[in-house]
């Protein structure tokens, strides 16, 4: 239900964007199109109708997959965007895996690290990573790994090597909140009575931490992943531009530069829907992992 309302909200937002600068027909035609053509398109697409009629028409057309054509490619804009979804999914999935693994390792070390300096270093790494914008992280990584040491390519989509730098970059801002929440929750759970009981039974400290503490500290991590899905999807716009990665994020900026408005809007739609789907998936995952939520449903 929440997801349905979110989809409706996203569609409405795109409609508002489409109408934000007056006549949408002007946006859907190449720059400098003759007035007669603008008038003709307005007529045929119903842009002279009252706004509410236009709104309903827009909803109907979009939901049935009809979206204006791209000015650059001349094909339906949604199709152009979908052609780039694969590359973005590859990047986002890799970044997510890196962020979750890195964040959990850092959170664990920050909570239970053997030495004080190690714990401090883990905590500090999260605070610092949180303060580095993705494009700066990207530029710094290119400077070190591509230009100084020339071990990784700075752009393109040729194979796994080209994926490493963009994925690490995109994972940066998501790594930090995962590390922080995992550390805090680990420390909280470690204080709980069931953990004390397990220790009292004589189970080794390591085994208690892995079995009894970690399991209970996983749920907040999933919550954070859901909350950060927007950072991850939105981050593709910047990261793909830094590394010329051919996904929907770079497509959005290329479309902005070539004033391909239908593609910009279709891209906005797809990224936002991706975010809605991600949150929906997190809710489902929650249901599988948390017996309490399962029972309530």
């Amino acid at each position: 239900m929440g997801a349905v309302i979110a989809v409706w909200g996203v569609l409405t937002a795109v409609f508002v964007l489409l109408n934000i600068s007056g006549n949408p027909a002007v946006l859907l035609l190449p720059v400098g199109a003759p007035a007669s053509e603008v008038a003709h398109l307005s007529q045929s697409l119903g842009y002279n109708d009252p706004l509410i009629v236009q709104y309903l028409l827009f909803l109907g057309r979009t939901l049935t997959g009809h979206f204006p054509n791209s000015l650059e490619y001349g094909t339906p804009a949604l199709g152009v965007v979908f052609g780039h979804v694969g590359a973005t999914l590859e990047l986002v999935a890799s970044a997510l895996v890196l962020a979750v693994i890195g964040g959990m390792v850092s959170g664990y070390v920050g909570a239970f690290g053997r030495y004080g300096w190690l714990r401090t270093a883990a905590v500090a790494s999260a605070v610092v990573m949180q303060s580095i914008p993705v494009f700066i992280l990207g530029v710094f990584l290119v400077l070190v790994f591509s230009l100084r040491w020339s071990i990784l390519p700075a752009s393109g989509d040729a194979g796994i090597q080209a994926l490493i730098l963009p994925a690490v970059t995109l994972s940066g801002p998501v790594y930090a909140p995962i590390a922080r929440i995992f550390r805090t929750t680990l420390l909280e759970v470690a204080e709980e009575p069931h953990v004390r009981t397990a220790v009292a039974k004589g189970i080794s400290l390591r085994s208690v931490r892995w079995r009894h503490v970690m399991g209970n500290a996983l749920l907040p991590v999933i919550t954070v992943v859901g909350l950060q899905a927007g950072t991850l999807l939105g981050g593709t716009v910047i990261v793909e531009t830094v590394f010329a990665w051919p996904g929907i994020g770079q497509l959005a900026i290329l479309a902005v530069n070539s004033r391909d408005y239908p593609v910009i809007l279709a891209d906005t739609l797809v990224i936002s829907l991706g975010f809605v789907v991600a949150n929906f998936a997190v809710d489902i995952l929650y249901m599988f992992l948390d017996p309490r939520v399962r029972q309530r449903v």
């Binding site: 979110a6 981050g235 910009i264």
Partner: peptide
Amino acid sequence: SIPAIILAVAFLAL
């Protein structure tokens, strides 16, 4: 439910 940056990009472009 709309990632801020893509909304900002679309808004500023239009």
